[in-house]
Each structure stands twice: as C-alpha cells, then as structure tokens.
C-alpha cells in the first residue's frame, strides 16, 4: 500500500509551475511584502453570495499543486475571524445579504475585499432584481474587482496579489 503511494509520488515528481513571467516579479515582491507587513501568511475567507459555483471551482483550483498558493504565503481559512482578505462571488443574492454582512463584520480590520467574477462586480447575467442586489460594491467597500465568467485561477491569483499590494502596501508607507 505505502509502496504504491510512494511510487506514484516519485513518478509524478513536482508538478508545481513557476508563476508566469509577468506575475513572477510581482509574486516575489508580494511574498516579501506580505512577510514585511504581516509577518506571516496572508489568510483568505471566501464567501459565496449566490454564485453559480463556477467561481468556486476556479478558487478551489487555486489550491491545486500547479498554482502552489501556500508556497506564496497565502492560505484559505475556515473562519472570517482569521482572515485578512475576503473573496466575494455571486450577484449578492438578497437571501445571502445578512450572512455576507455578518461575515464582513466578523473579519478583523484592516480587511481587504476582492470581488471575484462578473456577477460580484455588477450582478453579471443575473443583474439586479427582487432577488439579487447586483454587485458587492453596492453593500461593501470593495478594493479590487476581478472580471471573468469565471476568471481563471491565474487571473484570480494576480488579482489577490495586486489587492494585497495596493492595500497593505499603501498602509505601510
């Protein structure tokens, strides 16, 4: 049993990719910045506010070995009380608005808020209606928007890095 697992691990090798050239410089700087400013890993809490689950699939994919999110010093946490950054998806369904506000409140300040996907930016194809508020910026102060339906993992990663640089960087100076 153990033998089979060891064999598979050895055969697969290291699949983790370097961040694409354009991101790499930024990624390394951000890694340093995160360390300098926070002195520890950047923690993220994701909130699905009525998404179709497409954005969740891509945010989940960020944790696979190709993107090596934790290697950059970024990790997802279970509680908003442990989070530095909130990732919000979906057109902000009215039925999620209370839970969203409570999660936001539970996140310690300073907090960075990132809207992921077209729906979280302006409601996307669902728009604004009796059931949806139509965009995270209508209820919270949003630091950065990442467009796409859904945005690909590498684009989400770029977005997270820029948001951190923008907010945490501006605070340290």
């Amino acid at each position: 049993m153990t033998w089979q697992i060891m064999k598979k691990i050895a055969k697969t090798g290291i699949a983790t990719e370097k961040p694409p050239a354009a991101v790499e410089v930024e990624a390394l700087t951000i890694h340093d910045e995160i360390l300098k400013i926070l002195g520890r890993a950047l923690t993220i809490r994701e909130i699905d506010a009525g998404s179709c689950n497409g954005c969740e699939l891509e945010i989940n994919a960020l944790s696979n070995l190709y993107y090596n999110l934790e290697g950059l010093g970024i990790k997802f946490v279970a509680s908003p009380r442990h989070a530095d950054l909130l990732l919000i998806t979906g057109p902000i369904s009215r039925n999620m608005s209370t839970a969203l506000a409570m999660t936001y409140e539970a996140t310690p300040t300073p907090k960075v808020v990132v809207a992921v996907g077209d729906c979280a930016i302006n409601g996307g194809i669902f728009g604004e209606s009796y059931a949806t508020i139509g965009g995270a910026s209508k209820v919270l102060s949003v630091d950065l928007e990442i467009p796409g339906c859904p945005p690909e993992p590498i684009v989400i990663l770029q977005g997270i890095l820029s948001a951190v640089r923008y907010r945490l960087g501006s605070r340290s100076s």
Binding site: G50, G90, P91, S93, N95, G127, Y130, A131
Partner: peptide
C-alpha cells in the same frame, strides 16, 4: 436552502 436564489425564472 434558497440562499443562492437569483430570480432566474423571472430573468
């Protein structure tokens, strides 16, 4: 359930 209700039928 119902938290992700987006009014799709009407849309």
């Amino acid at each position: 359930l119902g938290y992700a209700h987006k009014g799709v039928d009407k849309a």
